[in-house]
Amino acid sequence: MFKRRHFLSFAGALASAFTLALSTAPAAYALEAGQAAPAFNLPGQDGKNVSLANFRGRYVYVDFWASWCGPCKQSFPWMNTLQSKLGPSGLQVLAINVDEKAADANHFLTAVPASFTVLFDAKGSAPAAYDVQGMPTSFLVGPDGKVLFVHKGFKDSDRAELEQKIGALIASKPAEVKP
């Protein structure tokens, strides 16, 4: 009888612990096209804070990158050309660094220079809000602040298709504000 009681209490504890574990697990809802892009306000390379809201009326290419991410290194030259080609049409590239140590990010930036805006988020609040599923991940945000598409990863073979896709979207609905 005692053994049985013993077992029951054990099983009860097990079940309650499991439910607790399940209920505390955060729900994974990836940010999709059509949803509003979560706001962020992060420091840039000059120390001044940049907010996504500053770019209302323009297209924003939000890219999450890290110094330890190989494909990110490939994407930087492409984002440089994207900024120079489509910047005049109202596109702004905002590359959010998620490195925990600023030194790692700065080392990367000296090796792979960026001609677009780089922001720093060591705490990872922005990638959490965007529910980034892999590194790098980028989001094209439209003039209305809604996500137009999500692109996971980066390969050199993505360059032409991505650029064409972004160019077509801007051409179909020109930015309200141009630099």
Partner: peptide, 12 residues
């Protein structure tokens, strides 16, 4: 069982 609730590291 608490160890079940520990989350693997996020991609970033």
């Amino acid at each position: 069982c608490c160890s079940c609730s520990f989350q693997p590291p996020k991609p970033w």
